[in-house]
Design a protein around this nucleic acid. Structure first.
Length: 374
DNA sequence: AATACCGGCGAGT
DNA sequence: TCATACTCGCCGGTATT
């Protein structure tokens, strides 16, 4: 006997063009000008990629992921344009303040990323979408009043629909997808706009004759399972029907990673210079989160931009920068070993990094000592 | 048979 | 043309128990 599904009311919040808006708040004189947040790789003066940009910049074609050099060319005729280096620590502080502010507004809270959150307001809205609309307005007001920042908000009966509502009107949007309207709302959108369908998935779906969300909603489960796997396949169909049973839950940190771009692509490289500060960084982050890790991975991006990884699960949890560094070093050695003879056309390494995962929490009683970091 | 581990892929910010 | 730094989830294959 299936338990009856209790209707839910979910609010999704997305801070508009977050990094760039943080910079606008920090320095209001740049408001209205194209603002580009840059991740400089340090290879050459202008090498690197655009992390994000504000709407005036986007309108001119400067979007996430494009090379900085290209953004500068596009904005060459707009000398008022502002190019700023990314300042993740600052954005994190602003994000934390906002998240703590809105966390108590719902019954349940989930931070989905630095600039996104979901609130389950089923109880506080008394199950009413009109009630949820009032709560959503209040969220927008509070963020504006306290942080001078706009956000986009969406209301739906699950996280997926809340997210689709948020995405449908940005920036400064407030959108409701009333219960029962899910399929109608989704059917008006192109396939690639469904959350979770990127270019690869869209291509694959088109190859089997599915080119609209409406068609996906009616697709054959077996067919989708064969193509996308037995979990992801059926889920695609569910999503196209506006169905999402996932709960709003506090999400523990599952992994931390640090990655850097090398000055020059390398075939074999002495990574100690690069790996040491990364290990210390990660160990500090572990300590401040009161965690230890049981897995260490290395990440390598080759010059052909493919991502490779090697990982090792530790017997015992660690919080030592030194051990993270040592294991990462071993993983890099084994990585190079299996690559075999350094052939002429062997892809070189462009970016290298470390990821730690499989966390266990440290009882907060014990105080950290200096040796723990070394 | 169930679980853990591993390396890769895709998506999103 | 040039192509960051993260985080999360899933997949299939293999190893372990």
């Amino acid at each position: 006997m299936a338990s009856p599904v209790i209707p839910r009311v979910i609010i999704g919040v997305d801070l508009d063009y977050f990094y760039a808006q943080c910079e606008e708040v920090r320095n209001p004189s740049i408001r209205g000008k194209p603002v580009v947040i840059c991740v400089y790789s340090g290879r050459t003066e202008e090498s690197g990629a655009v992390s994000t940009s504000n709407y005036p910049a986007r309108k001119l074609g400067v979007k996430s992921g494009i090379p900085i050099i290209l953004a500068k060319r596009i904005l060459a005729n707009y000398p008022e344009s502002v190019f700023l280096p990314i300042d993740l620590d600052y954005y994190r502080i602003v994000s934390d303040r906002i998240m703590e502010m809105i966390r108590p507004i719902g019954d349940k809270f989930e931070q989905a990323s630095v600039d996104e959150a979901y609130l389950d307001v089923s109880l506080k809205s008394h199950g009413s979408f009109d009630g949820a609309l009032d709560i959503a307005s209040r969220i927008k007001q509070e963020i504006l009043a306290n942080e001078k920042m706009t956000c986009s908000v969406g209301i739906g009966q699950n996280k997926l629909m809340a997210k689709m509502a948020v995405d449908s009107k940005k920036p400064n949007g407030l959108t409701v997808i009333p219960p029962g309207q899910e399929s109608l709302f989704l059917s008006q959108l192109p396939l690639g706009r469904l959350y979770g369908i990127g270019p690869k998935t869209e291509d694959k779906l088109r190859s089997i004759g599915i080119s609209t969300i409406g068609e996906l909603a009616l697709a054959d489960r077996e067919n989708l399972s064969d193509l996308f796997g037995k979990k992801q396949g059926p889920m695609l169909k569910e999503m196209a029907n506006g169905v999402d049973e996932s709960l709003v839950v506090e999400r523990p940190i599952e992994q931390m990673s640090r990655i850097v771009t090398l000055k020059h692509d390398a075939l074999i490289y002495d990574f100690s210079e690069v790996l040491k500060p990364i290990s210390i960084d990660l160990a500090e982050k572990l300590a401040s989160s009161h965690l230890m890790c049981k897995s260490v991975s290395i990440i390598a991006i080759t010059s052909d931009l493919k991502i490779r990884s090697r990982s090792k699960s530790l017997g015992e949890a660690t919080k030592s920068a030194d051990q993270i560094y040592t294991v990462a070093g071993e993983l890099f050695s084994s990585f190079f070993k299996v690559q075999g003879d350094p052939k002429q056309n062997e892809p070189r390494l462009r970016r290298v990094g470390i990821k730690i995962s499989d966390f266990v929490s440290v009882p907060p009683a014990k105080t950290e000592t200096l040796e723990d970091f070394i």
